[in-house]
C-alpha cells in the first residue's frame, strides 16, 4: 500500500491538534514541527476542515483547532479522506483476474487490503497519541521498537 504525502501530512496535523484539543496551531507551526511543505499542508488543512475533523479559527493568531472526538476517530477516518482506495500492490489488472493465477493473486491482495483496513480502523487517535507519548519518553530506538511491537503489560492510562 502506498500512502500519499497528503495523507501523511493530514495524520501529522490531526494528531498534533488532537494532542491538545484546546490548542490552536497555525499551518506554519505544524509544518515546522514535521519539516514539511507549508504550501502542501495548507491544502491538506482545507480538506480536513471540510471533513469536520478540525476547524479554522479566524483573526489575529488564528489557526486550527481539533473538533472531533479522539476516542472515536480512527486513523482510517483520516486516511480515507485522501486515499481513493487502500488496495495493495497485489491488485491484479483487467482480464488476468479471469485466470486461476490471477484470481489466486487477487485473493492475496484482498487479504493484505483487509488487514490494512482492519489495522487502520482499530487505532483511534487517542490510542496512537498514547503510543506517541510513550515513544517520546523512550530514549533509544530499541525502546521505541519494544513499545510498538511487544504490547507489554503496563497499562497505558
Amino acid at each position: 500500500m502506498k500512502i500519499q504525502k497528503s495523507t501523511t501530512f493530514a495524520l501529522f496535523a490531526v494528531l498534533e491538534l488532537a494532542r491538545d484539543p484546546e490548542a490552536q496551531l497555525a499551518t506554519g507551526e505544524i509544518a515546522d514541527a514535521y519539516d514539511i511543505s507549508v504550501h502542501h499542508l495548507a491544502k491538506v488543512m482545507r480538506q480536513l476542515v471540510r471533513s469536520g475533523l478540525i476547524r479554522s479559527v479566524r483573526g489575529a493568531g488564528g489557526g486550527y483547532k481539533f473538533s472531533a472526538n479522539p476516542n472515536r476517530v480512527t486513523l482510517y477516518d483520516v486516511v480515507a479522506l485522501f486515499e481513493d482506495n487502500l488496495a495493495s500492490e497485489f491488485e491484479v489488472p483487467g482480464a488476468s483476474v479471469g485466470t486461476g493465477i490471477g484470481r489466486a493473486l487477487q485473493m492475496v491482495g484482498d487479504e493484505i487490503e483487509d488487514l490494512t483496513q482492519a489495522t487502520l480502523q482499530s487505532i483511534t487517535l487517542a490510542t496512537l497519541l498514547r503510543h506517541a507519548a510513550r515513544a517520546e519518553a523512550a530514549t533509544t530506538a530499541s525502546d521505541i521498537k519494544e513499545i510498538l511491537t511487544e504490547g507489554d503489560l503496563e497499562p497505558l492510562t
Binding site: 476516542n71 480512527t74 483487509d114 488487514l115 482492519a118 489495522t119 480502523q121 482499530s122 487505532i123 483511534t124 487517542a126 490510542t127 498514547r130 510498538l148 511491537t149 511487544e150 504490547g151 507489554d152 503496563e154 497499562p155 497505558l156
Partner: peptide, 19 residues
Amino acid sequence: SRRDTLNLSFFRSLGMTAG
C-alpha cells in the same frame, strides 16, 4: 475478528498491538 473494529479498538486502547 478483524471485522470487529470496536473490539479491536478496545484492546488496542489498552496497549495491545498485533502479535
